[in-house]
Simulated scan of single mutants.
Amino acid sequence: MANYQLYRNTTLGVTLQDTLEEMISQGALTDQAAGKVLSEFDRSINLALDKRINKKIQFSGKLSTYRFCDNVWTLVLKDFSVKDPNQSQHNTTAPTSQIPPADKVKIVACDGKSATQA
């Protein structure tokens, strides 16, 4: 499985990078060690999401643009909305945690089994 660096832009990834930079500036960590930590973060987050996330949702929107490069799809959708197909099977009196509709959404998708890291 290729270890993509997409998740470095999440809150967790940015916080980790900020902490590593601070440790490097204080002399507590080398650049090489920080690089190894980031590589392990990439590997671990990709593995965790691959193995632990199995929720299925339905989404819709108008396809604005798309691109396929280096085995990575990038889709830009307008008038985006998400629907949980299992919501009707569960207790309908319970509060729903719904993703609000959005004017524009960018989706980046890759096949970790056959893709290679650029």
Rank of each mutant, 00 (worst) to 15 (best):
K51H: 10
D79E: 09
P100A: 13
L29W: 01
T30M: 07
P101Q: 04
T11R: 10
G61I: 03
A109F: 00
R43Q: 11
D111N: 13
T19G: 12
N3D: 12
A33Q: 12
A115Y: 00
R67S: 14
D42N: 09
S39M: 06
S97W: 13
D31Q: 12
R52M: 13
A118R: 00
C69R: 15
Q58E: 13
S114Q: 07
Q5W: 00
T30D: 03
A94H: 05
Q89A: 11
K55L: 14
G61M: 02
T116N: 08
G112E: 14
D50I: 06
D79Q: 10
Q17P: 01
R52Y: 04
S114E: 01
S25D: 12
K83G: 08
L75P: 09
G13K: 04
T116A: 07
F68T: 06
D42V: 04
K106M: 05
M1Y: 07
G13D: 08
I45Q: 08
G13E: 07
W73R: 09
P100F: 06
V76R: 14
A118I: 00
N71T: 12
E40G: 04
Q89F: 15
K36D: 11
R67A: 12
A33N: 05
I24S: 03
I53G: 02
N9M: 13
N71E: 14
F80P: 03
S114P: 00
S81F: 12
T15K: 15
L38S: 03
P95G: 02
S44M: 13
A2S: 09
I45G: 07
D31T: 10
F68M: 05
V37L: 10
R52I: 07
K55D: 15
V105Y: 01
A2G: 02
Q87I: 11
D31F: 01
C110S: 10
F41R: 07
V108K: 08
Q5R: 12
D103F: 03
D50P: 00
L77C: 06
D18H: 13
Q98S: 08
S60A: 05
T93E: 15
T74V: 09
Y4L: 10
N9W: 06
I57R: 06
H90M: 11
D70M: 01
D111A: 00
N71G: 06
I99T: 15
D79K: 08
A48T: 11
